[in-house]
């Protein structure tokens, strides 16, 4: 059953998320390849920048504080996309849903304490090669109202 195109334009959010230092470290090190254990996110592999996990190095670095690994943004910015594909009115079979494409634009770095507010909108719904596509655009602003992250999220429902 095709997803009804009349849901194009439907909006989700705003959703608010406060960035915490330990969460940044956990994310950085999970992507980076560390092995977390109780009480620690794990030892940083050599290729991971200290600006992402080492308070002292980060405070002396170009941003004056820890910064988020760029794709940390997905932790909060995914929310409108998640809400859209779980929207009972759309009727997406989540078991058959895969992530088709992703685009993220970063207009600034993110630091601990930043309060991010994300809104999203279903930009497109279409069928291609027998699969259904749902495209959600998101915009995340910090506590000063500046747009920091823009996202384009494409979900594909396998036939």
């Amino acid at each position: 059953m095709a997803i009804d195109k009349r849901f194009i334009g439907r909006e989700y959010g705003p959703y608010t998320y406060t960035i915490g230092a330990e969460k940044l470290r956990e994310f950085t090190l999970a992507v980076g390849g560390a092995h977390p254990a109780a009480g620690t996110p794990g030892e940083p592999p050599e290729h991971v920048s200290p600006l992402l996990y080492d308070d002292t190095a980060a405070k002396q670095g170009p941003y004056g504080d820890l910064i988020a690994f760029p794709s940390f943004a997905v932790v909060f910015a995914i929310r409108p996309f998640g809400a859209a594909v779980a929207d009972p009115e759309l009727g997406v079979n989540l078991l058959m849903l895969v992530h088709g494409e992703q685009e993220l634009e970063f207009l600034d770095v993110m630091r601990p304490g930043d309060v991010m507010t994300t809104t999203g909108r279903i930009e497109n719904i279409y069928v291609k090669a027998g699969k259904e596509f749902v495209v959600v655009n998101t915009e995340s602003r910090n506590q000063r109202g500046d747009v920091v992250v823009k996202g384009v999220w494409t979900g594909v429902v396998r036939a």
């Binding site: 920048s49 690994f69 794709s71 992703q102 970063f106 207009l107």
Partner: peptide, 25 residues
């Protein structure tokens, strides 16, 4: 996708300089 970002962050030497990423899975 994060690993692709990491590849470029290591190349330019600073993860705070990444401005955009896009890819199809």
């Amino acid at each position: 996708l994060g690993w692709a970002v990491e590849a470029v962050a290591v190349f330019v030497g600073d993860p705070g300089r990444i401005r955009k990423v896009k890819a199809r899975f």
